[in-house]
C-alpha cells in the first residue's frame, strides 16, 4: 500500500495540538477509493469467499440462495395474487422481481452497517484502503443478486405469455402496462444505478455504525417496516384506486417519499414490462449525488479513525 502524505511538519514543533491537516485531506480520501478499486483481486475474492463460506459443506452450496428465493417467490406470489384477486401470471413475476431487488437493498443496508465491524481483524492487521471492505460487501450483495436473478429468468420463462401481452394490469382497475419488451434492457443501467447508491450507503453506514453501535439496531428495527411500506407485495394501483382518478403525489406520499420505492422501480419496472417513469431516475440520480457527497465528507474526516473505532 502506498501511504502518500505531504508532511511539512519537519520543524520539530511538538505542540501540534490540532491534528495535522494531512489526516483529513480530500487527496487521501480519493486515494482510498482509487486504491480500493485497484485491489480488485482481493475484494472480489473475499466477496466470493463470504458466499462460499456461508454454504460450506452443504450439498447444494450457493444454490440454496436461488432455491430459497424460489420458494419465497412462489409462496408470496400464490398468497397475494389470491388476496388481491390478481392474475397470477403477472402478479407472481411482479412480487418475485420486487423481492429480488428488495433483497439487494436489504443486504446493502443491514450488512453495510457491519462492513467495518465485521472486518475488525483485517483492519487491525493490514493497511488496506477502507473501500476494499466496502467493495467486498457490495460484491457479495451483487453475487447474491445474480443468484436470485436465476429465479427471475425461470419465472419470466414460465409466464412469458402473460407478461408480453401489451396492456396487462397487475391488480384490478390498475393502469395498463406496456408489456415485456426490449425496454427490459433498461434494468441494466437501473441496477448499475442501484449499485452505485449501495456503494455510498455501505460506506456511510459502515463508518457511522463503527462509531455508534446503535445504528445497526436502528436499521434492523426499521427495515421490516420498510418492507411493508414499499410496494413489493402490494401495488401502487391499489393505492390509486383508493383516491380515484385524481390521485396526485400528495395522496401517494407513502410511496413517493419512500426512496426505496424509486430504487425498486428503476430495476423492477423494466424487468417485468411495467410502465416506466423518468421521475424515478431523476430522484435516484439526485440521491446518488447527495449521498456520495455526504459519504465522501465522512470518508475524508473519519477515514483514519475507523481503525481506532473498530
Amino acid at each position: 500500500m502506498h501511504a502518500t502524505s505531504t508532511v511539512d511538519a519537519a520543524d520539530e514543533s511538538a505542540a501540534t495540538a490540532k491534528p495535522t491537516p494531512d489526516r483529513r485531506s480530500w487527496e487521501r480520501a480519493f486515494a482510498d477509493l482509487r486504491d480500493g478499486f485497484t485491489q480488485r483481486e482481493l475484494w472480489s475474492h473475499l466477496g466470493w469467499q463470504d458466499i462460499k463460506q456461508r454454504y460450506r459443506r452443504s450439498v447444494l452450496g450457493p444454490l440454496w440462495i436461488t432455491l430459497s428465493m424460489g420458494v419465497t417467490a412462489l409462496g408470496l406470489g400464490l398468497l397475494y395474487s389470491q388476496l388481491f384477486d390478481a392474475s397470477i401470471g403477472t402478479f407472481l413475476p411482479y412480487i418475485t422481481t420486487g423481492f429480488i431487488v428488495w433483497q439487494f437493498m436489504l443486504g446493502s443496508l443491514t450488512e453495510g452497517t457491519n462492513t467495518f465491524i465485521a472486518n475488525e481483524g483485517l483492519i487491525k492487521h493490514l493497511p488496506a484502503p477502507l473501500s476494499v471492505y466496502v467493495l467486498r460487501t457490495l460484491w457479495r450483495q451483487t453475487i447474491l443478486f445474480a443468484h436470485n436473478m436465476i429465479i427471475y429468468f425461470i419465472v419470466v420463462t414460465i409466464f412469458w405469455g402473460s407478461l408480453t401481452k401489451s396492456g396487462y394490469v397487475l391488480t384490478d382497475a390498475g393502469i395498463p402496462q406496456p408489456g415485456l419488451g426490449w425496454s427490459a434492457l433498461l434494468a441494466i443501467p437501473g441496477f448499475a444505478m442501484l449499485a452505485l447508491n449501495a456503494g455510498w450507503v455501505i460506506l456511510l453506514l459502515g463508518i457511522v455504525s463503527t462509531r455508534f453501535r446503535d445504528i445497526p439496531q436502528v436499521i434492523t428495527s426499521l427495515i421490516n417496516l420498510m418492507f411493508f411500506m414499499t410496494p413489493i407485495v402490494w401495488t401502487t394501483d391499489i393505492l390509486k384506486s383508493k383516491f380515484g382518478e385524481s390521485a396526485g403525489w400528495r395522496d401517494l406520499w407513502v410511496v413517493e417519499l419512500n426512496p426505496l420505492y424509486h430504487f425498486l422501480q428503476i430495476v423492477r419496472a423494466p424487468l417485468i414490462g411495467n410502465e416506466q417513469s423518468w421521475h424515478h431516475w431523476v430522484i435516484v440520480a439526485g440521491i446518488a449525488v447527495v449521498g456520495w457527497s455526504l459519504a465522501l465528507v465522512v470518508l475524508r474526516n473519519y477515514r483514519s479513525r475507523v481503525s481506532y473505532w473498530v
Binding site: M1, A3, S5, V7, A9, T16, A17, P19, T20, D22, R23, I123, K124, H125, L126, P127, S304, S307, Y308
Partner: peptide, 11 residues
C-alpha cells in the same frame, strides 16, 4: 499505516 497518528505525523 494502520493507525494514523492522532497527533504528529507519519509518512
Amino acid at each position: 499505516g494502520i493507525y494514523e497518528p492522532t497527533r504528529g505525523s507519519a509518512k
